[in-house]
């Protein structure tokens, strides 16, 4: 059952990612944004299979909710309609694909060549919000506060950047 679900979610994730990057049917950035949502939902399913229930919820809330609304908002604001097919340089495309393929095969070779983990397989790990929050507020309190300041800086920066005349 779990294996079938893994295959299903992995397929959803990868097909969504392919359609974000290279959609053969449409050059519309809105289509890419929608397929990005599909990818995020697949990833959320993979997180559930990994027992990371809190992360799955965060993935849907933050990525499929907030980040995607931002993307669509900017897409509609800029109103890019003359997104026609331009001719791509075949040499560049081939070289890029070759390089990325080499990197991927190297990484996969490393994964399967690595020694096995010393931990004897996954124990049932309860990773709901409870243990995660306890760890976050006990061991990782300083990074948590730093991240909150980072978010504040981002808010102020976005407001200033979006003003009509940047001096």
């Amino acid at each position: 059952m779990q294996d079938a679900l893994f295959l299903l979610f992995a397929l959803v994730t990868l097909v969504g990612a392919v359609l974000v990057v290279a959609n053969p049917f449409s050059r519309d950035p809105v289509a890419s944004a929608m397929f990005l949502v599909v990818t995020f939902i697949g990833l959320s399913g993979l997180f559930v299979l990994l027992g990371a229930f809190f992360l799955a919820a965060i993935q849907i809330l933050v990525y499929a909710g907030a980040v995607m609304v931002l993307f669509l908002f900017v897409l509609m604001l800029l109103n890019l309609r003359e997104e026609q097919r331009r001719k791509y340089s075949l040499v560049k495309g081939f070289l890029g694909t070759l390089l990325v393929g080499l990197l991927a095969s190297f990484l996969i070779g490393t994964i399967f060549g690595a020694p096995a983990l010393t931990v004897p397989g996954p124990a049932p790990m309860n990773a709901g919000a409870g243990p995660l929050g306890k760890m976050l507020f006990l061991h990782y309190l300083l990074p948590f506060e730093v991240v909150s300041i980072l978010l504040l800086v981002a808010i102020i920066g976005v407001v200033i950047l979006s003003k009509k005349d940047i001096r």
């Binding site: 994730t13 990868l14 990612a17 392919v18 974000v20 990057v21 290279a22 950035p29 890419s32 990818t39 993307f71 900017v74 897409l75 890019l80 997104e83 331009r86 791509y88 560049k92 495309g93 890029g96 694909t97 390089l99 990325v100 393929g101 990197l103 991927a104 990484l107 996969i108 994964i111």
Partner: peptide, 19 residues
Amino acid sequence: VLLFSLGLLGVLLRRNLLI
């Protein structure tokens, strides 16, 4: 790894800044 490669391919090949 496959997801990362697809993302890298998009950064290298696509010309639209949003994508």
